[in-house]
Amino acid sequence: MALFAKYLRIGSTVKHGFQAFPQLTTAKYSVYPPHFAEPVYKKQELDKLYESGEIENYKLIPFKAAKSNETCSIFHDPMVAKFINYMLLKGQKKLAREVLEKTFEKIKKLQLEKYNRETDPEKKASMIIDPVVILKKAVANSKPLLKLTAVKRGGSFYQVPVPITDKESTFYAMRWFVQCGREKDKSISFADFMATELIKASNNDGKVVNKKLDLHKQCEANRAYAHYRWS
């Protein structure tokens, strides 16, 4: 699989650092003119910009208003906010957030139980209880390297394996979690299900990681069609 990935010349995952220049996003339709940049609201990131001197570039550009779900608080994490947005249905942000908070609580409960039962000090020290860390690890473990796209050649559609960007990959991983959650048994609550699923995924197990591995298998099986990308 790794060799195959190399063949398709996919770069290593780009570390999400802050940009040297502010991100000017071009929206198809936006209240803001196109030269407005996305705000930088985390204190640490701003400090880094001041240190490196790149802040001079930022001083010349107007910035959009900060979103309603973003704060500079240490308890706010952009990936968690993104995950809440993926869980969102019919604009009920409050409900989505509550469900995710319950999920985190359940993760903590499960992990604390294990932690309190564990006697080996090494294992104990390496046990992760922080639900945000588990979420990040779970998403990282379920990120696919390729996806299949339908390419029309000679009247029929072939499923061609194609590389994807880091952003798209993260999107797929998070969406699979939510999709599996929506397919779950009605008797289990979403929070319970998600908690167990996230913990399993952080240990490279569970439905979502299996989904990713299935996708990789299919890509491997369809490697003969890879050249259809360029025909």
């Binding site: 701003l46 001083k59 959009k64 208003a65």
Partner: peptide, 16 residues
């Protein structure tokens, strides 16, 4: 104040 501006706190949100 400049930091607040870059954080987006001083921009009126005109989205309707």
């Amino acid at each position: 104040v400049e930091r607040m501006r870059i954080a987006g706190l001083l921009q009126k949100d005109y989205r309707r």
